[in-house]
Amino acid sequence: MLKIKGVNDNLVILFGSGSYDDFLTALLNKLSTNTDFFKGSKVLFRGEGLNTLASDEIINLQKICLEHGMLINNISTPVESNTKQDLFVYRNIRSGQKLRSEGTLVIFGDVHESAEIVAAGDIIVLGKLEGIAHAGCYGNINSMVFALNFSPGQIRIANNFSRAPANDIKGYVPEVAYYDGENICITEYNPKARYSK
């Protein structure tokens, strides 16, 4: 009904099936058992169960987390977080910046060297990709990375990892990276091809 797990440096509270009152008691139970552990951690609300809640009920649950010394990491409003979020970004991602999407990530701009972009699903860069891209971060090996100008430092798909060859020729054709069951493959993008999906 209510699960708490650590994903990267966030605590994700997963809402299963249940009513508001069920969630409330479950949350208070969990928080009271291990007060110190939760203090100071960043909290994300996720899961299908959120769809059944009204936004002020979600806000109440977030307030409880705040009162226990936790930080709410939801950048968007609670109502929007009901569904898996595709993220559209209209700017350049610069060195040292990290971007995360719970769905597909689409960037209208460049991803600079040593910037990091992570998505649960596919990553599409309508610009130059020079940073680190991690598609399928929760384990979806069918995720792809696409860029108009494809010269990333690293590509990660689910648990697989690949880095740019040292003598990489900077490509100016749209390319796509996908996992073929053994390796991460990078190839010129062909709309007719079915990349492992």
């Binding site: 700017r91 991602i93 610069r94 060195s95 040292g96 910046q97 060297e113 040593s114 910037a115």
Partner: peptide, 13 residues
């Protein structure tokens, strides 16, 4: 140039 990129990102933020 990389550090400048980082700084520009922080400034924009």
């Amino acid at each position: 140039v990389r550090d400048a990129d980082r700084i520009i990102g922080l400034l924009e933020a």
